[in-house]
Amino acid sequence: MHAIAEKIQEKFPAGFLNAQEWRGDLAITVKREALHDVCTYLRRDPDMDCDYFVHVSSVDWPDDEERFEVVYEVYSIRKRHRIRIKTRVPEHDCIVDSMTDLWYGADFMEREVFDMMGIRFRNHPDLRRILMPDDYTEGYPLRKDFPVQGKGWRDSFDFLQDPN
């Protein structure tokens, strides 16, 4: 196992689930409860020193019990390592701790995840829709049960009738 993954497992034996290394990327899956602690460790510990916030993403796995996956990717400018932290949340309780207190960039990126996938972030200062309209009520577009062509609201537009 990767040295960083070993350290995290050692530090958070209860929260650590598994670590994967594929094509040179390190991905660590942790329990939802431990996510914020693990990220705090990555941010503050001098050995980890992950000061650069790369992206937040989310994946929908409709067949799984814990349906949504939240993905954080961070990078250390000084140590030059890239770490991906993942966690799973069930649909009926899709909320994770926000990382806005650790990285400023989490603000907009978590808002995008909320907008696109409907995952909520605890302690986020301004959790509103960001790309979709503010009054959009038809759901979350990147979920797998959302049709690619939209929910059909275009069909309900009133078009002008051809006078001829």
Binding site: D51, Y52, F53, I77, W103, Y104, G105, M109
Partner: peptide, 9 residues
Amino acid sequence: AEDALSFGL
């Protein structure tokens, strides 16, 4: 620099 990194710029 620190803020810029934290924002992911």
